[in-house]
Design a protein around this nucleic acid. Structure first.
Lengths: 233, 233
DNA sequence: ACCTGAACACCGTTCAAGT
DNA sequence: ACCTGAACACCGTTCAAGT
């Protein structure tokens, strides 16, 4: 449909790594991981593939850079001087990442791949740092910093990724209520012998709210942290 | 290198969906997501692409089926009649998924994509059910089943995915100690103003054990569940 | 019903050539 | 130093034709 928008704009600014990364993010947002191709990129930037390869080593590096750009913005928002408790600080950082992934669904898969491929990159420390500072403020003893921060980070990325994937399914024609109803109905139709538990919670799935549920999980982990570690705030 | 193994074995069994899925899993295990191509598949199965398309709709469906096959095996192992406490039951299920992802690193990305793309598929209920049964056994009140099970599932998939990605980086020439040392050293070299926390825990990262750390996170969530919800076991 | 294999459209990447 | 654009190897998928 609206694929050919801004078809061959006259190129006013010179090409640059930054402009390429911005265009990549736009393509990813518009059409998901499949939407980022060098053909689409050259058309949007009104140039040839060789020009792009002059600024960027390959597609993988471009994806990493796009991921880093979006994450940097997200943690900058989530980690401003939070006025409330350290718990609220953690919730703010968590929601910042949650909403970033919700707004850029391709980020979930990309984060999973990149965090593992290169934990020495810029993305992992960025996220780790913004969560960890709040953990420290919480009064968790230093010997448990790594454990507590890792647990929170894994939960956040896991849950946010899941929610994002759900959001991606919601296209133009499917709304959220329909979607949840379809899932719940499918779960209710499962074999009673093999899936008693899933059938029993099908209705809770139908009525849940993503953000609320996400924060409930954060609260669970926070409660676990205070129960396990003597806090000294 | 050893790419051409069992080059053109005489095809003894007829082609079938099951045999195609098995071959897909082998290719994924051997060379990651990039290793599964229809070319490689046709060579290994000594057939043409058309034959595969007769049994399988497209590559996405094949990936889903491969994922489901591996997960089914994993939860079958993790959820046998556990002799210990419900807590230990949860740990067993969690470790079952953890080890499955560690053994099939491509599973992490694939699970993230598939769980969201179709939560009405077979994979999501399988995992949800195996965790949820243990949550119920724990004595969590029914109104909190969905929240507690979701939190555990998100943590497990997030953490296991991360660890798997780490494992993937460890090729033939890099061992685990070197890898962790490289990460820690990189973290220690970060800007002291921007990354005080990450620098402070760099040493904990160097010495941590994946499984131990993974289980510590599970314990944290379990502690949070008992602290938050009145258990009636 | 099941399989063959040539063909098609598309992809990431390279590179000699230009400015 | 930066950009052009044709060309290459490879990919998922289709389909007329065979058995």
């Amino acid at each position: 449909m609206a694929t050919r928008t801004r078809r061959s704009q006259r190129r006013t600014e010179a090409l640059s790594r930054g402009r390429i990364i911005d265009a990549a993010v736009e393509l990813l947002d518009a059409a998901g991981e499949g939407g980022l191709t060098f053909r689409a990129l050259t058309e949007r930037l009104a140039t040839g593939p060789g020009a792009i390869y002059w600024h960027v080593a390959n597609k993988g590096e471009l994806l990493d850079a796009a991921t880093d750009a979006v994450v940097a913005r997200a943690v900058a928002i989530g980690s401003g001087e939070s006025p409330g408790s350290p718990q609220d600080g953690i919730r703010a950082v968590a929601l910042g990442l949650h909403d970033a992934i919700a707004g850029h669904p391709w980020l979930a898969t990309q984060l999973a791949t990149q965090l593992s491929r290169s934990p020495w990159g810029t993305v992992a420390p960025r996220i780790f740092e913004s969560i960890g500072r709040q953990v420290r403020a919480l009064g968790v003893p230093e010997s448990s910093w790594f454990t507590a921060t890792s647990a929170l980070m894994h939960y956040i990325l896991g849950a946010a990724g899941q929610n994002a994937a759900n959001a991606r399914t919601l296209g133009a024609d499917v709304d959220r209520a329909q979607f949840l109803d379809a899932v719940s109905t499918a779960w209710e139709g499962l074999d009673p012998d093999d899936y008693p538990f899933t059938r029993a919670v099908a209705n809770q799935a139908r009525e849940h709210d993503d953000r609320e549920q996400f924060l409930a999980g954060i609260s669970l982990i926070l409660a676990g942290i205070s129960a396990t570690h003597p806090l000294t705030p």
